[in-house]
Each structure stands twice: as structure tokens, then as C-alpha cells.
Computed example of a mutant assay.
Amino acid sequence: MSVAIYNADGSEVEHGIAVQSADGLKWVYTVTADNSSLDCDRIIMRVRVLSRYLSEVEK
């Protein structure tokens, strides 16, 4: 699963790959960039299933 974080102005804070937890039920992404203000930030998570279907969630 890929994760991208954007500031309110659309500039990218960071992006990277989430890893599946040991139980296989959750995905974990560890933030590495300094982002002191989370107001109106966008977090976009994308996962591709069976190499054909792309699913995207934005929070």
C-alpha cells in the first residue's frame, strides 16, 4: 500500500510504502518528515489488488 501526505496548499509532505502487520489485518505507515501543522492536510492511501484493480482512500 502506498501512502502520500499533502499540505493544505497541495505541496507534498512525504510519500512511501506501508507494511502489513504481522497479523495481516492492518497496514502500518511510519511518518519520517516533520509536519508540525496537520490542519487540512490530505492523506491518500492506494492499494492495487491482483495487479489490476486500484483502490484509493483519502482522509
Rank of each mutant, 00 (worst) to 15 (best):
Y6N: 00
Y6S: 00
N7M: 10
N7W: 11
N7R: 14
A8F: 13
A8E: 03
D9H: 06
D9E: 06
D9S: 07
G10P: 00
G10H: 00
S11E: 09
S11A: 13
E12V: 14
E12A: 11
V13A: 06
V13Q: 01
V13N: 02
V13W: 02
V13Y: 02
E14N: 06
H15G: 10
H15M: 07
G16N: 00
G16V: 00
G16T: 00
G16M: 00
I17N: 04
I17R: 01
I17V: 13
I17Y: 01
I17H: 01
A18M: 09
A18D: 10
V19K: 01
V19H: 06
V19C: 05
Q20P: 01
Q20D: 05
Q20F: 06
Q20C: 03
Q20Y: 10
S21K: 04
S21E: 12
A22Y: 11
A22D: 13
D23A: 09
D23Q: 11
D23E: 12
D23F: 13
D23C: 06
G24K: 12
G24L: 05
L25K: 12
L25V: 09
K26W: 14
K26I: 07
K26T: 15
W27G: 09
W27Q: 10
W27K: 03
V28C: 08
V28K: 03
V28N: 11
V28D: 13
Y29T: 01
Y29N: 01
Y29W: 01
Y29K: 00
Y29P: 02
T30P: 04
T30F: 12
T30N: 12
V31K: 11
V31Y: 05
V31H: 09
V31P: 02
V31L: 10
T32V: 09
A33N: 06
A33P: 03
A33S: 10
A33L: 04
A33K: 10
A33W: 02
D34V: 05
D34A: 09
D34Q: 07
D34F: 04
N35T: 02
N35Q: 12
S36H: 14
S36G: 13
S36M: 08
S36L: 09
S36T: 12
S37P: 00
S37V: 08
L38F: 11
L38D: 11
L38Y: 11
L38P: 05
D39H: 10
D39I: 15
C40N: 14
D41W: 15
D41T: 15
D41M: 05
D41R: 05
D41I: 11
R42T: 14
R42C: 01
R42Q: 06
I43G: 01
I44F: 01
I44W: 03
I44K: 03
M45H: 06
M45V: 14
M45Y: 09
R46D: 15
R46Q: 15
R46W: 07
V47T: 03
V47D: 04
V47S: 04
V47L: 04
V47H: 02
R48Y: 04
V49W: 04
V49K: 06
V49A: 13
V49T: 15
L50T: 01
L50A: 05
L50Q: 08
L50M: 03
L50K: 02
L50Y: 00
R52C: 11
R52V: 10
R52G: 12
Y53H: 05
Y53K: 02
Y53R: 02
L54I: 15
L54K: 08
S55Y: 10
S55D: 09
S55K: 04
S55A: 13
E56T: 12
E56K: 08
